[in-house]
Design a protein around this nucleic acid. Structure first.
Lengths: 205, 205, 205, 205
DNA sequence: AATGAATGAGCATTCATTCAT
DNA sequence: GATGAATGAATGCTCATTCAT
């Protein structure tokens, strides 16, 4: 079966596309992507019939990559806030480890290339991660806010935090903490006693 | 004397570019922008010598537009939190009133067309608005976070909030409140007694 | 009468065109010519209704300029060969003094912008100078060659000689001598006893 | 394996460019050249990445074409003057057989599109032909003239002679003779006995 | 399946010329 | 007359996609 070869090449294309698009924007020529992947133009179009298909495929690939990075290995049981915090840190770590991925994800998301189906699929892929935050929102004062809005807020904060961390990796803990504080507040849990605060000291106030 | 380069026409170009780019992305043809502005292609290039110049000009125009919308009329004196909240609401209102502007601002910001100079100028234009949040950050637990990071967080939250409000304008108050809660938390004022909490009612709980 | 003013400006345009075209070729924008002449585009088109008209006007202007440089002040009487030699030196001096003029003349001549009428007029203007060489040709072995061919040969030799002299002005005498030797040969007088060689002094050696 | 970049097509482009440029000047649209070569615009740019590259390639192609026409088949041994004369006739024949080539060569040479490298390469290609004339110059009175000047003189005379012959092909011998007489004079051999004279009379002096 | 040349619609930009002031 | 903004056809070049090999 030529399956294995195909998968490898497909992955190479996605990786090359990530680099090329991070560097040159969505206008990055398919030819340059193919070259970067070590393929001919013609072959690239065997894996993705159009550039739009490539972009949508890349979007889903990155979304799943991110979702996996957040959800695996499984986050150990514990207080919701701890679990959410761990998910958050994984999220940020993913983006800071390879800023290109995050940037490209956003570029595609804000473009008009993304089909509704892809957008839905991407959202579905993140459901595991999102659930963590949705749960926290549930009982709080912002429980009536649409999940979509919540998820968007968390995503925006994550993007900003990643970017900051990728510029100063040694500030990972510090920026993560600030970002999570905002996330927790956006979820509506910011002031609840059950959270015992962002850190223990605060809760004694 | 010939017809003089008219500010009106320049403004028309910027407005047309905003619409066209919101609709078709940065790849929107200059010809379509010119047409939408009621000008010939050639004339567009009298006002902006290159497409990049147009994009940079548009970016600055929108940034100043936003800055003015936040800062004018002057926000009346009062507790810092109230003033920041008023600035925040104006910000969201600006973006929700014309979502194209906000979208285009972000598209340009994440593209490679923006010169460093423009970026600096754009940041400078927003200084008035940013100061409001910087002041709040000053004495708090996040005082050591770089202003740049703070500003980026607030900006990201604003973008998300605007988008939500532009989809459901009647939820202006509700979304604004959530967004501001996150902002205030990101600034590090989320839990300070001097703020009497995110809102008065809550602190009594 | 605004005649004087007009003539000045017209001359300024021609001079500016010479510089601009020497620098950028026939594709030199009319706008740049106008600017170099200290005029507005619109005004330039008052003096020359089209770019082609400007080019033809410039051609004739340069041809007359050259013709005058060769013919004035009148070449004193003397042996034909001396008179021709003096004409030749004046010709070379003209081109070496301002190589732009010569280059532009050739550019226009080899372009498709030149009308037949202009070409004829240009030829007519040079008749005085050409006559000097035609006379020399008359009795010789090449008397049956068409005047047009003779003139073209002399022109080609002049162009080459000018170019060489404009690069090394101190070699004026040397290059002039070589050039004239070729001219005289092309005319068919190269070996006639009446010429007593390329120059009288030498033949006595 | 895909269709391979074909030498035939490349040649077709050069030929088409020669015709189109002879007809319309250097401003001949690339599209028209492509069409004349039976190619699409896009393909033309596969063979030559820019119009400037095409022009430089065309220049070198024509120079080599001319050089080959002069040098091949090898000129049989014999007196220098005879060999030079044979080279000269071949040169003229080349230009008269296809005046477009010569015209285009000159157009490119006098434009600003030609790179220094191309100019050098073009000169190098002609070295074989030029050597013939350089040798003749060597021992004569003009031996101290720079080779460059000599070559330019010969080239100018050739261009003029070609043009005349292409207009009246039946005058080939006659014009060739006149041209060569001038060439030989420019080289300084016009009066030397070893040449047995351009014409018999001289050698007796 | 892989390759890369071929295709041509599409785009930013230029520039001669016109015309309102 | 003078000015220079307005016009839009024309041009070099790009790039997604196709297809012969």
């Amino acid at each position: 079966m030529p399956r294995t070869l195909s998968d490898q090449r497909r992955a190479a294309v996605l990786e090359a596309a990530t680099r090329a698009i991070a560097r040159n924007g969505l206008a990055a020529p398919t030819a340059s992507i193919a070259a970067e992947a070590g393929l001919s133009v013609g072959s690239l179009f065997n894996y993705f019939p159009t550039k739009t298909a490539l972009l949508n495929g890349l979007y889903l690939h990155l979304k799943h990559d991110l979702a996996a990075a957040v959800a695996e290995p499984p986050i150990p049981d514990g207080p919701l806030r701890d679990r959410a915090g761990e998910g958050w840190r994984r999220w940020i770590r993913w983006g800071a480890a390879d800023p290109d991925k995050q940037r490209v994800l956003m570029l595609i998301e804000t473009s008009h290339e993304l089909t509704d189906q892809s957008r839905r699929d991407g959202t579905a892929a993140m459901q595991g991660a999102d659930a963590l935050f949705a749960e926290a929102q549930a009982g709080g004062p912002f429980a009536d806010q649409p999940l979509e809005f919540l998820v968007a807020m968390v995503g925006a904060l994550a993007a900003t935090t990643m970017e900051a961390v990728s510029r100063e990796p040694e500030q990972f803990d510090s920026r993560c903490h600030v970002g999570f504080t905002a996330v927790w507040a956006a979820i509506g849990s910011g002031g609840r006693s059950s959270d015992t605060g962002t850190d223990g000291k605060r809760s004694q106030a």
